[in-house]
């Protein structure tokens, strides 16, 4: 997103990233930040208005977070970044990903089994693994839909259902998003723990990368362990890095009454949360495609926990051999 925006915009994003790191480290001391005792020389009136513009806090008898700050100069910048690049590039990334998937489906089509199914089933996922997966998946979809509605609802649904309709929809959406967020984080952590040991680097992954997982050449067979490199990339980049990042920034945004947070911190968190969420959603489209339309029999494995031996052999040969030999640690 940074690379395609203009230089000055990219710089502003970098400054924001730096600012959030600073803001996080200075969080407790922020409230007592005093004005510099050695005041710069010059016109006191000019200095006064300069301080106001820079957000130097004064004194207010009204209690409240930042009530002494007369002008919140970052607000306009946040508005421009959220309504500008964030919405524009966010929509572009998601639509581009959808387009790529549709194109891939039309050109390559679903990957079907080359040999007939044997009818003999082997267990691929335990009931607990499936519970954790579906818990994460369902909360993720709800979080994704409600989050997208907050960012794009006004532009997309607004003209159809109006402000009142949006209010009803997003009023419920906000509740779902805010309360389900911590549940999603818990499921994500469980998911990482459950599948961690099968997502470490294996020798066969290099072969998978070299041949792009056989995605572009039908009949190309690449042996892999319980998870292939594509699944491992989704596990590390998507679930672990982006999942924890989005859920973590979301948790910091949640429950405004419990901790006082400055507006600037909230602005930066909203932007980071949304950038992470857009990237995670784009990646998830790939995962969802592969699991539903892209690979025959993939959905069945997570639905029933069992796969046909032919499927196991064709998609995860090393794992199949391990399981058959009784060496798999899962069954």
């Amino acid at each position: 997103m940074i690379a395609i925006s203009r230089g000055s915009a990219a710089l502003a994003w970098l400054i924001r990233l730096a600012a959030i790191a600073m803001a996080l480290s200075m969080l407790p001391s922020m409230a007592v930040a005093a004005t510099d005792p050695a005041k710069p020389p010059g016109d006191p009136v000019a200095n006064y208005w300069r301080e106001v513009r820079q957000g130097v806090p004064g004194l207010s008898q009204v209690d409240g977070a930042e009530s002494g700050v007369l002008i919140n100069a970052a607000g306009q910048q946040w508005r421009e970044q959220r309504n500008g690049p964030l919405k524009r590039y966010g929509a572009m990334i998601l639509l581009a990903m959808l387009g790529i998937i549709v194109l891939f489906y039309l050109v390559r089509g679903p990957m079907r089994l080359s040999a007939p199914p044997t009818g003999r089933k082997i267990q691929r996922f335990t009931p607990f693994e499936r519970f954790v997966h579906w818990g994460t998946a369902i909360t993720f979809i709800l979080m994704g839909l409600t989050g997208l509605a907050v960012l794009f609802g006004r532009s997309v649904l607004g003209p159809l259902i109006g402000s009142g309709g949006l209010g009803g929809l997003l009023g419920l959406g906000k509740l779902v998003h805010n309360y389900l967020g911590p549940v999603f984080l818990a499921f994500t952590i469980l998911l990482i723990l459950v599948f961690l040991r099968d997502n470490v680097w294996a020798k066969c992954d290099a072969q998978w990368i070299a041949r792009a997982g056989g995605m572009f050449s039908s009949g190309d067979h690449i042996p892999s362990g319980r998870f292939n490199f594509g699944e491992k990339a989704w596990f590390w980049l998507g679930v672990t890095f982006l999942g924890l990042f989005v859920a973590g920034t979301g948790l910091l945004l949640d429950f405004p009454a419990l901790i006082d947070r400055t507006r600037e911190l909230m602005q930066n968190l909203v932007l980071l949360h949304a950038i992470g969420a857009v990237l995670l959603l784009a990646m998830s489209l790939g995962h969802i495609y592969m699991a539903t339309l892209g690979v025959e029999g993939a959905m069945e494995s997570m639905k029933t926990g069992e796969v046909d031996e032919t499927w196991a052999k064709e998609h995860h040969e090393l794992w199949y051999e391990e399981t058959k030999a009784g060496r798999s640690s899962h069954m």
Binding site: G167, G168, L170, G171, K174, P256, V270
Partner: peptide, 19 residues
């Protein structure tokens, strides 16, 4: 503003120059 449709997200506060 129309309070009936307000969802209490706080974005207006983040953007407002005057708090």
């Amino acid at each position: 503003h129309n309070k009936d449709a307000c969802i209490g997200c706080g974005y207006c506060l983040f953007a407002c120059p005057f708090g």
